[in-house]
């Protein structure tokens, strides 16, 4: 057999499945490590926020009102709810309930977009009514808008990704065995959820 014939092809058979299983494991591990380093990115900014917050000028700094917990709490419910629907989406996929999976995915996208809308409303309110800005309100504005903005960006990326996932699923890209894209999306979405738990606690509760 000549070297030149060593190539990909559709006729892989069992060998191809073994290959898929192994590359899926690699991708899963690589993706988890990506989430770890992303988590370090958030942790570093959270450290910076807590460090500045405790640098002795009181919190919130003079002239700035406390953040509105009630609104943010309702908004959080949207995001946590989307975590639940995403979980059921993956479960339904694994059990072969295609339509339920699609509906759960659609709910997740709607709830995620709703959370972003809430965040946009909150930002507008802060900037217009309370005159708090990213660069003009000292370390309060800097840390709040940077961290929640980073998180919001992650949610935005997630909503886009899940929309692509929805279209791909409708087009039949994924099968009963080969659905790494869905697993990765679910992991990412839960990661974004967990980060929000931390951010909500340190900005609104303490």
């Amino acid at each position: 057999m000549a070297v030149a014939s060593i190539a990909h092809g559709s006729a892989h058979g069992d060998g191809a499945d073994q290959l898929y299983v192994e590359t899926r494991e690699l991708r899963l591990q690589g993706f988890l490590l990506f989430l770890v380093s992303d988590c370090v990115l958030f942790s570093s900014f959270i450290f910076a926020y807590l460090y500045l917050r405790n640098s002795g000028q009181g919190w919130p700094p003079p002239g700035i009102k406390r953040l509105d917990v009630a609104f943010a709490a309702w908004n959080s419910v949207l995001l946590f709810g989307s975590g639940a629907t995403m979980h059921y989406a993956l479960e339904n996929w694994k059990h072969g309930n295609f339509m339920k999976y699609m509906w759960m995915l659609i709910f997740t996208i709607i709830l995620g977009a709703g959370f972003l809308g809430g965040q946009a409303y909150e930002y507008t309110h802060l900037i217009v009514a309370e005159h708090v800005s990213w660069w003009g309100s000292g370390i309060f504005g800097a840390s709040f808008f940077t961290l929640t903005g980073m998180h919001g960006f992650h949610v935005f990326v997630g909503v886009c990704y899940l929309t692509v996932l929805l279209l791909q699923s409708a087009a039949g890209v994924y099968t009963g065995q080969k659905y790494f894209g869905i697993t990765a999306g679910t992991l990412y979405w839960h990661f974004v959820d967990v980060i929000w738990v931390v951010l909500f606690s340190i900005f609104y509760l303490i």
Partner: peptide, 8 residues
């Protein structure tokens, strides 16, 4: 080889 990355 039984396939997989090593055999690929």
């Amino acid at each position: 080889h039984a396939g997989g990355i090593a055999g690929h």
